[in-house]
Simulated scan of single mutants.
Amino acid sequence: MARLPAGPPLDGLKRQIARHRSGNPRGNDGLFVRETFRLDRTDARQKAQEWFDAWPKAAYWTEVESWRQLEGDQIEFTMRRLPSAD
Rank of each mutant, 00 (worst) to 15 (best):
W67G: 14
R45M: 11
R41P: 04
E65D: 08
A44C: 12
E76D: 04
R15G: 01
A44Q: 12
V33L: 06
F37R: 04
W67H: 15
Q74D: 08
N28P: 02
P25K: 12
L31W: 12
Q74W: 14
Q46R: 15
E35W: 06
H20V: 08
Q74L: 15
W61S: 05
D73F: 14
R68G: 10
A58R: 00
E71I: 12
W55Y: 11
K14L: 09
Q16P: 03
E65I: 07
R34E: 09
Y60W: 00
W67N: 14
G27Y: 02
D53F: 01
H20Q: 13
P56M: 01
D40H: 15
G72E: 02
Q46E: 11
D29G: 11
A44T: 10
G23F: 08
A48M: 11
L13V: 10
E65N: 09
D43V: 07
D53S: 01
R68F: 11
A54Q: 08
V64Q: 14
L13A: 07
K14W: 02
D43L: 15
G72M: 04
Y60V: 00
R19W: 08
R15A: 05
D29F: 13
R19C: 10
E71S: 13
S22D: 07
G23E: 04
G12S: 10
E63T: 10
A18G: 07
D43G: 11
E76A: 09
I17A: 05
G72I: 06
N28E: 11
V33Q: 04
F32M: 14
R15M: 05
A48H: 03
G72T: 06
D11H: 09
W51I: 02
G23A: 05
P56C: 01
L39S: 11
D40Y: 15
A48G: 02
A59P: 00
I17T: 09
A59W: 00
T62Y: 00
Q69V: 15
S22W: 04
Q46F: 06
N28L: 10
R21P: 05
W61L: 05
R45I: 08
R26K: 13
D73H: 14
D11S: 08
W67K: 15
E76G: 06
W61A: 06
D73Y: 14
V33T: 03
F52E: 01
P56A: 00
R19F: 07
W61Y: 11
N24C: 04
T42L: 10
Q74S: 04
T36F: 13
Q16M: 08
F32R: 14
K57D: 00
G23M: 07
A59D: 02
A54L: 02
F32D: 05
R19M: 10
Q49W: 01
R15Y: 02
R38V: 15
V64D: 12
P9G: 03
E50I: 06
T62H: 01
P9D: 08
L10H: 09
Q49N: 02
L10D: 11
Q69N: 14
L13E: 07
R15W: 03
R19N: 10
Q16G: 03
